[in-house]
Design a binder for these strands. Structure first.
Lengths: 138, 138
DNA sequence: TTCTAAATAAGAATTATTATCTTTAAGTAA
DNA sequence: TTACTTAAAGATAATAATTCTTATTTAGAA
């Protein structure tokens, strides 16, 4: 995603385009691997040495609210952020903090088909994400 | 689950049977709805007014290590705990902090079958849990 | 160019959780 | 039953992540 693209997206959401917002959004996209707020701060400080920690948290939060980012979390660590692209699942490593994306349209179709056939009583499903835990082989 | 049952389980895991451990384990089971450490403390204080916060955290942690409890977390709140029964998924409410269990053996079988057929490259799957987000219809 | 609301910076405050250190008590064996 | 050993509990300090507050700055509209 280009910087112009990022600016365009912020505008579309009615967010003021500030250098901080652009940098933070760009950082999450560039860093991939679901960075924590801390990783984002570390990365951004290179070009924006004076950026405030609170700003990073606030901007991340507002990008999530505006559906430009998503939060990801497993049971053992702090909040992480993920750029919204296509719907995907997450592979969590049992032995480390590693998290990877996993996309599988066929799987999605199968699950979607399953739940359109078999409703959950008293619950309206909006989204299903698989938390796949296991081990990365080397 | 009876108190004797709880005591038996602690013994089986080689954990000393203390009133605090029994109370904490019992609380998570009784409270259902995936209580936070705070909820557990609140509940336990009724019968154990002098229990220490650190103890609750420590005991919860050791019950998780000994696979008597599981941690559950979604993207918007603090750690929650869940008694281990059968394998199950979670229904997360988009509008509140509510989390419910969801069991479906047929679904599990279907997913298991899918992944035994279609491997994930470089990853050995151990467990798959669905994070189903949506709305509870009162 | 000026104006105004919204955003940022700085740092204090809060919250959840963990660590430390002393005291207590569970389980074992005499 | 009693005494012993060691793990567990209690109290509280420390830490880490995140949120809040207030003054200052700036993006975008007029």
């Amino acid at each position: 995603m280009t910087t112009n693209n990022i600016i365009e997206q912020l505008k579309q959401k009615g967010l003021k385009v500030t250098p901080q917002r652009v940098a933070i959004y760009e950082a999450v996209i560039k860093l991939k691997k679901h960075p924590t707020a801390e990783k984002v701060i570390e990365y951004i400080k290179k070009n924006h040495p004076n950026i405030s920690v609170g700003t990073v948290y606030k901007v991340l939060e507002s990008l999530v609210e505006n559906q430009l980012l998503k939060k990801v979390k497993n049971e053992k660590d702090v909040m992480r952020y993920d750029a919204i692209t296509q719907h995907h699942h997450h592979l969590y490593c049992t032995d480390s903090e590693r998290i990877e994306d996993f996309e599988d349209r066929e799987l999605d179709r199968m699950i979607q088909e399953y739940f359109s056939r078999k409703k959950i009583k008293g619950f309206k499903v909006k989204e299903i994400t698989l938390q796949i835990t296991g081990e990365f082989k080397n």
